[in-house]
């Protein structure tokens, strides 16, 4: 699965990385998603955690992209 993190919508709630730390990383500097504006891979084993992280994002900043 691939997901895209919206550069503008992400406002640094940090929920994604809390629930799926293997998938989502926060910037050390400001705490926003470090891959803002990027599309990243979600390993199959992490899909469940990633889904919880995505659901917890108050901005709906993370979307699954069709492969």
């Amino acid at each position: 699965m691939k997901v895209h993190i919206d550069e503008i919508k992400c406002s640094g709630h940090g929920r994604c990385a809390k629930y799926a730390p293997e998938v989502f990383r926060l910037s050390d500097d400001d705490g926003y998603n470090a891959d803002r504006g990027q599309t990243i891979d979600v390993p199959a084993a992490e899909e469940k955690n990633a889904a919880i992280g995505i659901r917890s994002c108050p901005e709906r900043a993370i979307t699954v992209v069709a492969e």
Binding site: S11, G12, H13, G14, Y19, G31, A51, I52, G53, I54, R55, S56, C57, P58, E59
Partner: peptide, 20 residues
């Protein structure tokens, strides 16, 4: 609950800076 999509710390660019 698995995944709690709440808005208590606000939404948008003004997201609570003290939330952490």
């Amino acid at each position: 609950r698995e995944g709690i999509p709440h808005s208590t710390f606000g939404v948008g660019p003004h997201r609570c800076i003290g939330s952490n």
